[in-house]
Amino acid sequence: MADKIPKFSDLPLDKNGPHHNAWGLYGPHDELGTLNRLTPDIVKAASSEIQTGHRIGLDWPLDAQSDLPFFGRQAFHKEVYQKPPRIVNDDVWTFNTQSSTQWDGLRHFGFQKEEVFYNGVTLDQIHGRNGVEKSNVNGIGAWSKAGIVGRGVLLDYHSWRVKEGRGHDAFATASISVEDLKAVAKSQGTEIKFGDILLVRSGYMDAYNRLSRSEIETLRAKQPLTFTGVEQSEEMMEFLWTNFSAAGGDHPSWEAWPTQKEYALHEVMLGGWGMPIGELFDLETVAEHCKSLGRWSFFMSSEPCNVPGGVASPPNALAIF
């Protein structure tokens, strides 16, 4: 399968489209992007990761950020109500799909200068403006049909960095390099296979969990917000393109924020390749379990919510060992 995708150096595929795009690789109307790499054979091979049946959820609680989500997003609200006279309860949840653990879908972030999303979808198509009929194209509901299921790989950058004696500020703009991620994989003895679902433990959750409410309020008020994340570089793009079906981590921006280049990885990954970006994954428990086993790969199952035209979704993700 790996030999059937274009080399990174062949991008952009659509020479009339934005930089580094892979538009048309799976047809002009494709809505799965790099999830097409999760073929039945790839998923079947990933099932060999299940050896003990131990399961660990990767979703942070939906209300984990309380009333103080970053990026000005709406907080999670839950209303539980009885339905008298019966002894019965219902509940209503209201939340921003990106206020906790999330997959960014293909409607979330497009190429900023060109104003287009994956496979050339426009804002007018999404919102039904300027005489264009509104549609559900590129909606995250398309990903729910087969889910995001395969071999998950955790690169525990945080533990490796601590061992190396390196400093780290999760709330300052800084970059995690490809060189470092490869060093983490080597240190763990982790082989990366084509089609893997990449999860990077940056140390954000560990840092966030140590903050007081007043410290969160101060950080939240910063403009622009600043976070450590993976670097924006040709090397990082090639690493991601060559190996993975989806990529994410425990941090709120995935990439160093604000971007350190004239482009953002979000543009290329979501808008160019259709590669899901995961953010705010809770990787603390799974990191501990991986360390106890000496194995940082597992079978991963995630089913985004089936919302036609949705922008993002909680992953509903499990790591299965």
Rank of each mutant, 00 (worst) to 15 (best):
A256Y: 01
V149G: 04
P61N: 05
H266G: 12
H251A: 10
E49G: 00
F71E: 15
L199R: 06
V153D: 07
A185N: 11
S135W: 06
A142T: 04
S144T: 12
R295S: 10
N138K: 04
G33V: 02
I140C: 01
N243V: 06
L58T: 04
W257E: 08
S47C: 13
S66E: 15
W60V: 03
G278H: 07
H168F: 15
P276H: 00
E217P: 00
F298S: 00
G110N: 08
Q223S: 14
I216M: 11
N96R: 12
L123I: 13
G17I: 02
L32D: 02
S99H: 11
G189W: 11
A287P: 06
S297T: 15
N316C: 03
G249T: 01
P61K: 06
L225T: 08
L58G: 02
H108Q: 14
G27M: 06
E235S: 15
R86Q: 13
L318F: 11
T173I: 11
H19Y: 09
L265H: 01
F70P: 05
L68F: 15
P304M: 02
V137P: 03
L199I: 01
A146V: 05
S214T: 12
G139R: 00
R37I: 05
N119I: 03
S135H: 09
K182W: 00
K7Y: 06
C290D: 01
G152T: 05
E284H: 14
R86F: 15
N136V: 13
N138W: 06
G53C: 09
G271S: 07
W103D: 05
P40Q: 07
S99W: 07
F281H: 04
L219T: 13
P28H: 10
E238R: 07
N21E: 11
I56W: 08
G33N: 02
I50G: 06
E114L: 11
L123R: 09
P252I: 12
L38F: 03
A142W: 02
S66V: 11
E255T: 01
G24H: 07
P308C: 03
V162S: 04
P314Q: 00
A247G: 11
K44Y: 05
Q260G: 05
A264C: 14
E133Y: 09
G249S: 07
V162N: 15
L154M: 07
L280N: 07
N243R: 03
I140D: 03
L293I: 09
N130W: 12
V43L: 10
E267L: 02
S233C: 11
L38I: 08
Y157D: 07
K15L: 11
K261L: 13
G53E: 13
G248I: 09
E217G: 03
T173Q: 15
A312R: 08
P28A: 10
V153W: 09
E179W: 09
K15Q: 12
Q82F: 10
I87M: 13
H127N: 14
G131C: 14
E255G: 03
L280E: 05
F8I: 07
N209K: 14
I56N: 10
E234I: 08
A64T: 05
K83N: 13
D169K: 09
G24W: 03
G150A: 11
A2N: 10
A170R: 03
W103S: 00
K113L: 12
C290T: 04
G120D: 14
G24N: 08
D104I: 01
